[in-house]
Design a protein around this nucleic acid. Structure first.
Length: 227
DNA sequence: TACCAGGAGAAAA
DNA sequence: TTTTCTCATGGT
């Protein structure tokens, strides 16, 4: 990944959408919960699930661990895949407790923490990196479906590269910078959603350019908005 | 009614 | 080793 291109795209997105101040989550624990619940799911539905957890007093490590998988599944139902996600969330909470709590995790180096998170059943690369970047403020770039689609349409990647290949590419191109990664990912999500308000990322109109999402057209549009 | 969304893991080929 | 299938609600 060319550092100049990565910076250029960032500057255009930032000019168009402004500062993101992104990840919706008030506590480190809430961010970790959100990272699991948002798997293949729109954030609006994750918020409903988090509201349910909070309303029932379960939005804490011990609160979740006090619930059965069935009870937890019922609370997180709006986020979809609730049976699967209930097990994954419990796995993550058991892991946090086994490791001695959030602070003990925070004390660990990223090189040790990332593989440990990936050992948890239900925590894959994207979920682990969401947690590392947003909950533990580590310089780890998150590669999600939006990132693949936007940068492949920009012609900067093919889109089917392995996760690690892309993560390393972005990180080497941008240099280690937590605030930049945080903001960049937020901008990518904003752009993906706002570029086509009717149906985010729909191939039909986006590929035809009807929503202004396609590459050169979109970039020039961003440039104009940024002026 | 049909389609899709900010993944991950297990099963099948 | 790679590909396919499964999990599920809610909005358009």
């Amino acid at each position: 990944m060319e550092p100049e291109s990565l910076r250029r795209v960032y500057e255009l997105l930032h000019a168009a959408y402004g500062p993101q101040q992104w990840w919706p989550g008030d506590t480190r624990f809430e961010i970790m919960v959100g990272a699991v619940l948002t798997q293949n799911t729109a954030w609006i539905n994750v918020e409903r699930a988090i509201v349910n957890l909070e309303a029932s007093g379960a939005l804490s490590l011990e609160g979740v661990l006090a619930l059965s998988a069935e009870a937890l599944a019922e609370l997180i139902r709006p986020a979809g895949y609730f049976n699967v996600k209930a097990r994954r969330l419990l796995n993550l909470c058991h892991f946090i407790r086994q490791q001695g709590g959030e602070q003990r995790l925070a004390d660990r180096q990223t090189d040790a923490l990332r593989p440990a998170l990936l050992e948890v059943n239900g925590v894959g690369p994207e979920t682990a990196d969401d947690i590392l970047l947003y909950a533990f403020e580590r310089p780890v770039f998150v590669i999600d479906a939006y990132t693949r689609r936007i940068f492949s349409r920009l012609g900067m990647i093919s889109g089917d590269e392995p996760y690690e290949h892309l993560r390393q590419g972005f990180q080497q191109g941008l240099g280690p910078d937590v605030a930049l990664y945080n903001e960049y990912h937020g901008l990518i999500v904003s752009h993906a959603k706002q570029a086509c308000a009717k149906r985010p990322l729909c191939d039909d109109c986006c590929l035809r350019g009807e929503c202004g999402f396609t590459t050169s057209h979109r970039i020039s549009s961003l440039q104009n908005r940024g002026k």
